[in-house]
Simulated assay, not measured.
Amino acid sequence: MKILLYFEGQNMIGKSGIGRALSHQKRALSSVGIEYTLDPKATDYDLLHINTYGPKSLHLVRKAKKMGKKVIFHAHSTEEDFRNSFIGSNQLAPLVKKWLVGLYRQADHLITPTPYSKKLLRSYGLTQPISAISNGIDLKKYYPDEKKEAAFRKYFNLTATQKVIICVGLFFERKGILDFVELAKKMPDYTFIWFGDVPMASIPANIRKVVKKDHPKNVLFPGYINGDLIEGAYSGADLFFFPSYEETEGIVVLEALASQQQVLLRNIPVYDGWMEDHKNCYMGNNNQEFEHLIHQLVEHQLPNLSMAGFKTAQEKSITQIGEELKAVYQAVLEQPYDHQIYAKVTR
């Protein structure tokens, strides 16, 4: 079997979780011996696995259907996680939902990262088969490395005893960036580092103001950093704190777990079934709880759950995800061709 993996808008969203999901898919398919192409002009593939939602994505779906190809849509996005992101996102959210549902309905099968996001898709009235498959994690890449950790501390001029809390994400209110900064104000003895960026013109003025100047000295916004530095940060910090209000999975959580780092999350439904408070992570509901938990975790006043978290990451390894994708591909290719779907997208 040969798969066409498609990703539209690499320059715009390649640094996001969706961008990393494509990288994981490529590795996952290679790990189980499945041939793939990234060339949208290719015709010698058996199944289209599409990750994005723009007009080029729609065009490719229609082209695939005309050729009698099966289509899988990877539902990374929902109306819920579009809100509280870019300028005007809340006003556009209902239209985005309508667009997403229109695209998703054209697929023979949907893949989405978690049971929670699968539940959301069902609430949209989507009726085709849906598989909940994690975006997966490259365990070797994030395994703790003393050299990477030393490079991270040197880069930020951190002393050996400096307590550091990190987060990784776009500059979205949904990600909890305002809470991250507010907590840093209350904890001046700790250094808070938020990795990631987004074009400043695309985000609301209040977020832009916080990132550019309205934050305390103990908060750092170094932008998007990859490679050894971010990998060293994951394992070399004292805590990974992710106060996001809405996710379809949260690849950065998997990266922190794979780094054997202590993890503090907001208690939201996406984690149901795989992250459990006081078992493989800690969870809070508001800034008061977060402040208390951050202090306890950084000062080693609570049990270290990092190895339990690492076991969770092991269950979502790239190889495991490859096997799950392979099973879905085989099932879809064995399905009878749906002429009703063909008629909808080709007329």
Rank of each mutant, 00 (worst) to 15 (best):
L4G: 06
Q10E: 08
M12H: 08
M12F: 11
G14Y: 08
I18F: 09
I18P: 03
A28W: 01
L29E: 03
L29D: 02
S30C: 09
S30L: 13
Y36H: 05
K41D: 12
L48K: 01
T52D: 02
V61R: 04
R62P: 00
K65D: 01
K66A: 15
K69W: 01
K70C: 03
H76T: 05
T78C: 11
E79Y: 01
E80G: 04
F86N: 02
I87T: 12
L92Q: 12
K97V: 06
K98L: 14
V101K: 12
Y104W: 11
S123C: 08
L126I: 15
T127E: 15
I130F: 11
I130C: 14
S134M: 12
S134H: 12
N135F: 13
P144I: 06
F152S: 10
F152H: 09
F156A: 08
Q162W: 02
K163V: 02
V164L: 01
G169H: 07
K175V: 04
I177E: 03
A184K: 12
P188F: 10
P188I: 05
Y190L: 15
G196P: 06
G196D: 07
R208Q: 15
P216H: 13
N218W: 13
F221E: 04
P222D: 09
N226P: 01
I230A: 14
F241V: 06
G250R: 09
A256L: 11
A256H: 07
N267L: 01
N267M: 02
V270W: 08
G273C: 10
H278A: 13
N287M: 12
E289V: 00
F290Q: 02
I294L: 06
H295F: 08
L305P: 03
A313G: 06
K316G: 00
S317K: 08
E334G: 02
P336H: 05
D338A: 10
H339T: 15
Q340V: 03
Y342F: 13
Y342G: 07
R347P: 06
